[in-house]
Nucleic acid binder design. Structure first.
Lengths: 356, 356
DNA sequence: TTGTAGGCGTTATCAG
DNA sequence: CTGATAACGCCTACAA
């Protein structure tokens, strides 16, 4: 099917081409009796158009219901007004909160959010990023500092700015915004050590393709190692992000003859599960054992025994990341490495170990 | 600053324009010794290009690291490969789950997801939708059936397909996918009525700008009305989506001299809060009173007394919505009205009212 | 301050 | 099966 315009120029010979399906800038211009350039200026640079013209144009736009075509604009402008974010998943609370914050922040700057998931897979993250670049995103928000080997090269090569979130590392290449995961668990562990604990258990999500979880686990191990302690294999369990899993793993690490006095959980759902199972088993927290989590969701503070945890303000991470990437897109040159606080929230679930 | 191309054509007189910053289709074509049309076909319609040419082109693309420009493609194609979704919020579990599912589903069809929030505000929803249209989305996923008065007209006028999710209504204009909110609570209430309850309390989120919550509340009221019952004002409380609020409101509705025997909660967080507070108050659930929720998050089944609730598979809603909208974009004409099951999950938190 | 005209990077028509 | 070329809708350097 030939395009409407072509068809038209074959049938009538000169002006008044057959009406196109959708109104465009030219239609507005014609209706307002000005040039397309003036219409364009009236919306992108209102100040340099005389007041009456501007007004007339605006009213015509409104009457015709014209909506500028982003693709065409992006093509000439080389800017789409879109920021992409690739998260490992969207169903975990922290990323959902960050997404919310990013969205809100971008809104105030006139950008929109393109969203994708990597499912904790570097390959897929890379693929998503490539697709985003094709879509013309102006900047990217990523999670973590471990990516596909080609990723950074690709981004750098095309000059697309990006931030890495939920990590803080002085050694990484590029900007990052987030907590120091290693230090967070290092400090949390020292808090427990200072309380007198020596027998630790850990229940955590998989560290595969998750540099943040890996860093936290290392923080835990390093703190223990400094006091010549370690977690025995039977007190170490890996699972998913669910309460049910927390229950099962808690039962598992409590099954042996030697019981831990402190159980460190890698995320708030595991922590809640561990706690609920401890109650079901008739244990008294923190008298019989301490349970601590990571990340502060509301549930942890509302359980019958509120759970000690590490608070990372995921919305702050998101907000700052969005703000930074917009700044970068609009010309601010500097990279930044911003550390978000990872605060230990001490609640009733942690205390000295039981005397034997 | 004049563009590279312009500059070039002033300095050299004929071919070999100054190298552009980014490689384009023409560069690939030149390097492969074919026309741009052939390169275009090689990637969009590989079958109609001879095998050896195709292979040569592909290798050149790879070598030059060319990434097609989505804006340019969208401009000629009139299709962006992008679906927009506007949710009231992203931090509630159900929308987060739906987002996740939508994203995953779109991925398999080669589309990407543009995401925005309306903050439960019709005006803002409308604004976001307009922005999405400017960005060139091919289809839209909305929530609910109550929108800005101009919204549907706008969408219909531009021929942009959309689905309304989390609602099921035969009377609405357009497609919708979701549970029948009214019937869900109607049934749940009847379940409690059949158990023998007559004194009800309700704890719910605000129904302002939330047609789903409104429908559910009406379902509850209608079921009661059929048995000539109603919820007295002192047993009705409105709050947010938090456990803490659930606690406070539970305490509130239990404060008067006449206690309810069944507390119906509008969302799972309120339900969890109500339950936790009931425990703190020393009440026995379901012996002293029944507590039921809406929406099934994992927590409800893991509490010491698992909570009866209504299960809506939010990911199913998302997946189907995505699938439908993609179909529509690609030419399937029919509208649909798909009802997702809203299943009552009976757990230990509900039982007969106490005998007096 | 406003108009003219060319180009942004692809796709698609039409001829070879 | 392949190549030349005109759109796609808007922006902007340049001229008036």
């Amino acid at each position: 099917m030939p395009r409407a315009r072509v068809q038209a120029s074959k049938e009538n010979d000169d002006k008044s081409p057959a009406p196109r399906a959708t109104v465009g800038l030219r239609d507005v211009a014609r209706a307002a009796g000005v040039s397309t350039a003036t219409v364009s200026r009236a919306i992108n640079n209102p100040d340099i158009v005389s007041a009456d013209l501007r007004e007339r144009i605006l009213s015509v736009i409104d009457r015709l219901g014209w909506v500028p075509d982003g693709a065409a604009r992006a093509l000439t402008t080389r800017r789409a007004g879109v920021i992409g974010a690739v998260f490992p998943t969207l169903s975990h609370g922290d990323f959902a909160r960050a997404t919310n914050a990013i969205q809100a922040e971008l809104l105030t700057s006139g950008y929109t959010l393109l969203l994708a998931c990597s499912d904790y897979d570097a390959e897929q993250e890379y693929r998503q990023v490539r697709k985003f670049i094709e879509r013309g995103v102006d900047g990217l928000i990523l999670v973590g500092e471990a990516h596909h080997p080609k990723l950074k090269e690709f981004l750098l090569g095309r000059g697309v700015p990006f931030v890495q979130t939920f990590v803080y590392s002085r050694t990484t290449h590029g900007s990052c915004i987030g907590p120091d995961n290693h230090r967070a668990l290092f400090n949390l562990t020292n808090y427990l050590l200072d309380l007198g604990h020596v027998r630790f258990a850990a229940i955590a999500q998989s560290t595969e393709n998750n540099d943040r979880a890996t860093a936290r686990l290392n923080g835990l191990r390093d703190a223990l190692a400094e006091r010549s302690l370690a977690i025995p294999p039977e007190h170490f369990a890996i699972g998913e992000w669910t309460i049910a899993e927390g229950r099962a793993l808690f039962r598992h690490v409590m099954a042996g003859p030697s019981k831990p006095t402190a159980v460190v959980c890698g995320n708030p759902y595991l922590a809640a599960g561990a706690f609920l199972e401890s109650q079901a088993m008739g244990l008294r927290v923190p008298h019989d054992l301490s349970i601590v989590g990571y990340d502060d969701i509301e549930l942890l503070s509302e359980l019958p025994v509120p759970i000690t945890t590490v608070r990372v303000q995921s919305d702050q991470v998101g907000r700052y990341a969005a703000r930074f990437i917009v700044g970068k897109v609009e010309g601010k040159p500097a990279d930044i490495v911003f550390e978000c606080p990872a605060e230990i929230i001490v609640r009733a679930s942690s205390g000295p170990p039981p005397r034997r």
